[in-house]
Structures are given as structure tokens and as C-alpha cells.
Design a protein around this nucleic acid. Sequence first.
DNA 1: ACGCCGATTGCCACTGAGCGGAAACCTGTT
DNA 2: AACAGGTTTCCGCTCAGTGGCAATCGGCGT
Lengths: 256, 256
Amino acid sequence: MVQLMAGNRLEPGRSTASRLLSVLDVFSIKAEELSLVEIADRAAMPVATTYRLLGELTKWGALERLPNRRYRVGLRLWEVGSLAPRQRDLREVSRPFMQDLYEATHENVQVGVPEGNEVLIVEMVSGRSAVPTVTRVGGRLPLHATAVGKVTLAFSDPDLLARTLQQGLPKLAPRTLTMPRMLIQAVEQARQNHFAFAVEEMTRGASSVASPVLARDGTLIAAIALVVRASADLGRLAPAVRTSALALSRELQRTR
Amino acid sequence: MVQLMAGNRLEPGRSTASRLLSVLDVFSIKAEELSLVEIADRAAMPVATTYRLLGELTKWGALERLPNRRYRVGLRLWEVGSLAPRQRDLREVSRPFMQDLYEATHENVQVGVPEGNEVLIVEMVSGRSAVPTVTRVGGRLPLHATAVGKVTLAFSDPDLLARTLQQGLPKLAPRTLTMPRMLIQAVEQARQNHFAFAVEEMTRGASSVASPVLARDGTLIAAIALVVRASADLGRLAPAVRTSALALSRELQRTR
DNA sequence: ACGCCGATTGCCACTGAGCGGAAACCTGTT
DNA sequence: AACAGGTTTCCGCTCAGTGGCAATCGGCGT
């Protein structure tokens, strides 16, 4: 028998709760179905420990076990998550406005809220004729390379912009703004115009226009955007997005 | 100082993981914003313990802390939950079909999947003109008093019906089927017709028609329903629901 | 302003719940 | 039938989690 760690713990100080939650962290849009070892690896925990925690999570319904012994996120977790008021209220109120915007343009409509250093997409309306996007409801978009992101930066606490610049502006597509000066200027413009563009900055062939959804006190609640093929005339679409954003803002201000 | 339990635990044998998850359990549609003591009470745990767990959950983002010191479900939990493939795929595929059904009838359209002894509503389309329903996305409906429920019972493992009968048929509205015989008969009819009705069995003034969404092997994936005011002509609406259910089934069978 | 009461936060002694290495046990593959 | 890769069970050791208590905070009524 080899030497054991003190208390038999590889990482003393890490709480059981945080271990449990870090199991949930390993699931993502690119990894929605994982095996025991895959989860253990990604969560940086021994298999035995991971196995026990997975058992608890599965029993509760946070995860589901597939016949091929893999794990995926379960319905019970979705159910509890769908109670999150921040997304639920916004989503319910915005749906009709998004629908109208879709009818008028037949392009992809997205609504996102700031979450950490990204924008979390909370609702989407898209049809067959619109450009296919990689984005999904529940997915995240970067702040510096999207229209929703620029609008968010323009109407949030200034140090969100500072943090974004500090952690660098990764080049995601040929036309991504990678120079701080350029982004600062774009954000400044967004603040003045109440809308922002992003032309092939995130994905080649796709562009977007966004406008802010604001609370009574002027703070940003969300951003609404149209994602279109790069050849589309963004200038012509901007007023429609702006109008929807205003209507949505007014409706949200009415209810609270 | 008073006597302490062995190990200072009130409830030895209850794991930390299960305690953490039972904190999430206390949140519901009727209790989406709770204070520390309320949570401790409902989860049957001491305040000190609850406080620590709430701290971990908040740090991770599963819960959010409001200025009034209350807790509610956070965006991070919604984000992870939205990865649940069972609801995500179904929801994405069904949306256009639901939209069509809505356009044709201008009534509330619901899609639900079986989860435990209830139906979990996964997606909804409703307009201003339709009857206001209490049901929300993420909400649950009883198996015995709704059209979606009866359809689910008709096309699921027979012992789901047995379990439903065993735990009693609570009277939810004047016309709820409370006699086992009646429910069995209704389920039998649903199996033959491929649709079911519920006339003011759940809520006075509201009725519904539902039809099953089936996998290639005949097992039930979901149920799609129209919820209408009680005065509406259900018989006239049934074929539309049936048609949507078939179209949706076919589309789902195509993709997998 | 003041005092009251419930809610929140911090503290700390005690021990069983959680940890993880290792071995047994499956499951599909050559 | 042997093997490889993953999954499940086992078990001894100990520190992380527990929860009673008390100090502190804060909202509300007087």
C-alpha cells in the first residue's frame, strides 16, 4: 500500500458542494453527453469521487443516465432552471415583440442578457429562410465581436468594458475588432445611436444589428438583435430593431 | 450548553449533496423568491447549515441574491438546465408546428413530456385572444385531469396508469374524473382515437384536446394540446391537433 | 429617535460523511 | 479467449461539515 494524503484528500479545502457543482460545469453545448471518466477528467476529480456525486445528481434528476451509461443534463434541472425570474419574465414579455420583428424581416431575432463577461442568449426566433446561426437559446456570445455585446457594453457599468479590454480581444473572424481603440469607438457610437452593428466580426458571412432594452432608470436589462447574412443592408434594418427595443423597454417598464 | 447529537448532526445519513439539492427543491412557481429562514424551514434544515449551502449555490450562480436579501433561481442554473437534450431538441423541432397550430386556431398550444407522475410543459404558444391559463413553461400538469395527461397515460407503460390510480384522483374542478373506472375508459378511448379531451376537469371554464407525439417504435415522446374556453367546439379542433401531432412525430422520427 | 423582534452572520468543538487508491467486475473488440 | 477501457464496489482514515449559540444587523411601529 502506498502513502495516502492527509485525510485521504487530494485537494483539501475544496468543499463537497463545490465539487458537486463543478460536475454540472463540465456540461456544455459541445459536451452534452459524457461518460464517467470524461466527467472526472474535466472536473479534475478522482473517478470514485465523481462516481458517487454522479449517483446523487442522477437520483435527484439533475442528470439522466443513458443506456450507453453516459450522462446528460436531466429534465428536473431544466425545470428548476426555468424558474429563474431574470430570464422567465423577459422571455415571456419579449416573445410577441420578437415575433413581430421576425414577421417584418424574416431574419433571426435574438434577445440576450449580460452574464459574466458574455451575453447569454435567452430567447430566439428564426425561420427557414434566415441564415443558420450556431447560437442556441442558453448559448453565450462574446461582448467584443457581436452587436448585442457592443450594445451591452455601451449601457452597462464602464468597468465591464475595461475588463473586456483587459482580457484581450480574440480574433474570431476576419473582421473582428481586435484593437482596443476600435472597440471603444464602436461602443461610444452605440451609446449615442442606441444601436450597434457587427459585420462579419464573429462569423464569416453573418452580420448583426442590436439595440438596448432599458429599465426606467436607464440601466440595461437586455439587448435585442437581428442576425442576417453579411450581404443584407444593415442600415435599413436598424430602425426596425430600434423600434422593437423601445417597445419592449416600454412594456417591461410598465409591468415593474 | 444543551446536549448535542452524535457528530453534531440532526439527521445522520443525509448526505451533503442531497442537502444541497434539497435547497433547490424548495423553489417553485409559487415560491420563486425566498428568505433564508423560509428556505431552511422548507428544506427542514438548521439555519446555519442552510446559510452555508446558500452561500455556495450563490457563488456558483445557481441562485441570485436580491437587495432585499432574498434568494431566487439564477441565470447560471437556467443556462445549464437549458442543455437538457430531452427538452431542447423537442422544443426546437416543435416550435414551428406549434406556431402553425396557433395560427390556425388562435388558441393556447402546449407541448408536454412525461416526468414522474405528471406532465412537464416544455413549450407554449399563446396569444392575447386565447384563454389565460395558469400553466407556464416549466410547469406541471396532473395525468388524470388533463388531455395531455390522458394521452400520456394511453401511450406509456401501463403501470403509469396503475400508479396514478393508486395514489388517488384528487378533485381539481367540478368535472374532474375521480372514479378509476371513468379514467380507465377515457384512457382506453384515447388509445383508440389517438386523441383525448378534458372538459373543465382541471380548471372551471377551460377545456383541452391533446394528441400523442410518438417515436418510430410507438413509444410516447410528448403530447401536444390545445387549451380553449369551455364553450369551444372540441370535436372540431381535434383533427387539427391530431394533424400537428402526426407532422411533429414524423419530423422527429426523421432526425433520429 | 428609540427600542423591539425577527433575520442574518460568525464562531467553534465534535465526529461520521466523504475521500480516493485499489481491486473486482463488466462490456465490447480483436 | 485474452485484452483493454471503462464502471462499480470496498474500506480505513481523517478533516470538512454540522448546528447550537450568541453577537449583530435592519426594518418597523410608536
